[in-house]
Simulated scan of single mutants.
Amino acid sequence: MITGSIVALVTPMMSNGDVDWDALDKVVDFHLEKGTDSIVAVGTTGESATLNCDEHCQVIKRVVERVAGAIPVIAGTGANSTQEAIELTRSAKDAGADACLLVTPYYNKPTQEGLYQHYKTIAEAVDIPQILYNVPGRTACDMLPETVLRLVEIENIVGIKEATGDLDRAKVLIEAAPKDFAIYSGDDGTAVELMLLGGDGNISVTANVAPAEMGELCRLAIAGDADGARAIQEKLNPVHNAMFVEANPIPVKWAMTEMGLMGLGIRLPLTVLDQQYHSQVREALKTCEII
């Protein structure tokens, strides 16, 4: 089981929107040096919605090659087309990814039965560990706990990124799912409490800029050290908040530019962080001694 601090990695880009491959290597090395437990390549934070299929697969392959087996790589391979998700998942397996993260189909609003059949079909088509990803605030599609609990019976569906921030829902899943089914937070603000309930880790935006701190926070929370984990969480709260002053990954990419890790490139329809938020994000980074 993959556990701990899992960074939802950004995809660095040049000013014209092209992928910045050298900067991608640099940020992967940064996480290896800082003790991140696992990397998600090309998830929401990695701008999966605007990378074309070739770029999507190339970024995953590049991250896998750069990590070189040091930590697990989880490939974002979800789509609102079941067939496209199968193709992306198959490509990620061929590239050497350790697992795949599949967001619920966005925009087309499937039923709960449609969600079950979607994930079942992908799992049967590609023999690789697969992690469900529920983030209704972005997808307009909410996968209910009862659907998740049907899907846990499929052997290579091994976990879920629950990004609703709803701790009552997380508790239901933690208590009802098999112990070897991983429950990850996808919400930095509530991640500590989810892990203290018995969750297995956090797929994090903040980990892009504070990997060492998020790593320690996750280790303490998973070990049940509530005071220690909450103390780090309190310190990081300004950063958690700053990372969402505009749509993710706008703020985190700007923050990483301030840290000297990459340039300002981002792909339309997303734009560079509005100037009115610069001081808030910069001060959050300074408060946490990131810059």
Rank of each mutant, 00 (worst) to 15 (best):
G4L: 04
S5M: 09
V7K: 04
G17D: 10
V19E: 05
A23K: 11
K34A: 13
G35L: 05
D37A: 15
A41E: 07
G46Q: 02
A49L: 08
T50M: 08
I60A: 00
A68M: 04
V73A: 06
G76W: 07
S81T: 09
Q83N: 08
Q83W: 05
A97S: 04
T104I: 08
T104S: 12
N108T: 09
Y116L: 10
D127R: 01
I128V: 12
Q130D: 00
L132D: 08
C141Q: 13
M143K: 11
P145C: 08
T147H: 00
T147L: 01
R150Y: 03
I160R: 02
I160E: 13
A163H: 08
D166T: 06
D166Q: 06
D168N: 13
R169L: 08
A177I: 09
A177D: 03
K179H: 09
A182H: 12
L194H: 00
D200A: 15
S204A: 07
V205L: 06
T206P: 12
T206M: 14
P211S: 01
E213G: 03
M214H: 08
C218W: 06
K235F: 03
L236Y: 03
V239R: 07
N241M: 15
M243C: 13
N248H: 04
K253P: 04
M259R: 05
G260M: 04
M262A: 07
L264M: 14
H278R: 11
V281E: 05
C288Y: 07
E289L: 11
